[in-house]
Design a protein around this nucleic acid. Structure first.
Lengths: 106, 106
DNA sequence: CAATTGTGTAAGCCATGGCTTACCGTTAGC
DNA sequence: GCTAACGGTAAGCCATGGCTTACACAATTG
């Protein structure tokens, strides 16, 4: 039931902002925190929660920690959502990669 | 940004249980509450939140209120997840391109 | 009309958790 | 080696919100 965890983690608006900032690519903590309405430690705490939930991963680069988006962390939540649409689960797995391209090419 | 609201609403485990009980079909409040580890008023409160978020709809039938699952309430959340997939692929392409150039320029 | 059933609402309690400030270890630059 | 930048962690404050009990009111039943 990791989807429950993902839901709880992404429910907080600030944490979701932190998470969404990583859509554009990996970032260091101070870069992520810049412009957010909360302190830098608060961002660190959010990143820890995101990491524990598998939504984000971290690597060290000198004195800074680079965080990056982790696609797999959203898989279960997505599958759970799809299960509400009936039997779409199998179809989703097959189309996960290519339907994206199809949609974008419209 | 209703997806944020949907996330917040579905983050609570008890409320999510209430919601999931409606997958099988419309139910009256006392039926939904039966077997749940919280009181009946608690369930009423959760149903109110779910209804306000558009995840559930209500109709009266005599003295009882029948609640039913509302698929449209999940649409924005689903689209939000999809967009994440898109951005992730985008970022991946960018990264791949960057490292490719870097490799070539050496 | 009285009693019962079904459910929403109010008030209040209390745990959770997000935020801040303060502090500490670690790495880079001079 | 000193000093500054980066960022994780601790302690404590406080708002949020989920839960309970108590109550109100409508519809049904006899």
């Amino acid at each position: 039931m990791a989807y429950g965890n993902a839901l709880a983690v992404l429910a907080d608006p600030t944490r979701r902002k932190v998470f969404e900032r990583l859509r554009a690519g990996p970032r260091a903590v101070n870069v992520i925190a810049a412009g957010l309405p909360v302190s830098r430690p608060a961002v660190s705490q959010h990143l820890k929660v995101l990491k524990d939930a598998g939504l984000v991963e971290e690597r060290s680069q000198g004195v800074r920690r680079i965080y990056s988006f982790r696609r797999e962390g959203l898989m279960e939540l997505r599958e759970w959502l799809d299960s509400f649409w009936g039997d779409a689960l199998e179809a989703f797995k097959l189309e996960a990669e290519k339907s994206h391209k199809a949609r974008r090419s419209k």
